[in-house]
Design a protein around this nucleic acid. Structure first.
Lengths: 222, 222
DNA sequence: ATTATCTATAGATCTATAGATAATGC
DNA sequence: ATTATCTATAGATCTATAGATAATGC
């Protein structure tokens, strides 16, 4: 029973010397919370294990009882952030389901998640490269899992209301595009914010994704 | 006169002990060429200055005659890659100019550049974070300069042929989107290539950007 | 007795430089 | 004489561990 509680930060293949699983969970939570801030501010390489231990509230010696190396900390951080992002996205998308209005809502909710989790999204992109290759694969799969939420949502909407039938390839591509368009706000907010508020950004992107930008002139499509 | 030739890898604010400007240019070219491969393979931090010197064909001592620190090498690499990408994009976009066909062509050419320069685009994203802040700003500006090429192209097309009038904000957003959609191919090719060839990717993305995906059903837009 | 935590440091690594040597041109 | 290149290493830094100490429960 307790196994389930601890499974999150415990049974992920990160070894520990500590016997008490609840303590492991608690300390690793401390480690992750402290480290996210340090990584956001200094990046992975300029953050030393000493800084991590200190910020987490114990000594280096203790730190190495809960992880076997610095890369373990990195992995714990990546997992925690992805969990957070995914939870936020899933929660945001648990709305109703009809046609374009739903799609517009999905875009809106997702972009706001990206806006709020800006630092975390940037961090994920910066540090994934330093993960050992086995874990790097897992991180990329996590990334795809979030994209897949959009793809599934699109397939559910496909053919309903005012939304045309979408073949899988099209749905897949649009799903990736929505995912990346949200991340673009996180990446380029420092610049885009000169022109757009987040709400304007959502408005313009929704128009774009729904294909309204290039439509006003009568269609000369063959 | 020669100043112009050497300006590229010389007068960029990277100091050198060497008097002969042509030699500086040549050696820095060696350094950049060797380092790009090392960075792509090992990343910035795991590439040592010794490795760089060796791959470039001289000793560490000599390396430090042409740059003052490792970050200088990073900066030279970033500048060189951006120059290459920008040149490739500009060359690819020097086509004709009518309506949607031109836009489709722009998308096509750009995506192929991203496909071919995959490694370099990924590298840019990975290493920009390690630049000293003054140069980081320059790197981000370079990034925007490429986006701006698309925005300008869109504004030229605006209102011509079968393309509707685009206000600046819309053009800016679409420009950013095109830029990011190309990069998405570079980032996720390892996965997207399971579903799309580069040509299919271009085809589907063009349909998407031109707003054809959500159109087939008769428009119920109010 | 067992578990958790701490201090102190070994060991490895890497950047950047000092000082010596070779090459070039007046 | 001046310029370019090399070798050898100082100096700094950081990860991970060994071994000592404190806390907990039988």
């Amino acid at each position: 029973m307790q196994k389930k509680i601890t499974a999150n930060l415990n049974a992920e293949g990160v070894p520990t010397q500590i016997k008490n699983p609840e303590l492991v969970l608690e300390r690793r939570r401390q480690i992750v919370d402290a480290t996210v801030h340090l990584f956001v501010e200094h990046g992975y390489h300029k953050t030393t294990t000493r800084m991590i231990a200190k910020a987490a509230g114990f000594s280096i010696g203790s730190l190495y009882e809960y992880v076997s190396c610095k890369e373990d900390v990195l992995y714990l951080v990546c997992e925690a952030i992805h969990g957070e992002v995914q939870r936020a996205v899933e929660e945001a998308l648990s709305g109703s389901a009809n046609g374009r209005a739903t799609l517009a809502e999905v875009i809106c909710e997702y972009c706001h998640v990206c806006d709020q989790m800006n630092d975390h999204i940037l961090l994920m992109y910066q540090v994934t490269q330093f993960l050992p290759s086995q874990w790097k694969v897992k991180a990329l799969e996590n990334e795809l899992r979030i994209t897949d939420i959009f793809i599934q949502a699109l397939l559910v909407l496909s053919g309903k209301g005012d939304i045309p039938q979408l073949d899988y390839k099209t749905a897949a591509l649009v799903g990736h595009n929505i995912s990346v368009i949200g991340q673009m706000w996180a990446f380029r907010r420092w610049y885009l914010a000169k022109t757009f508020s987040i709400d304007e950004y959502v408005e313009y992107q929704t128009r774009f994704i729904l294909g309204l930008v290039f439509q006003p002139v009568q269609s000369i499509e063959k």
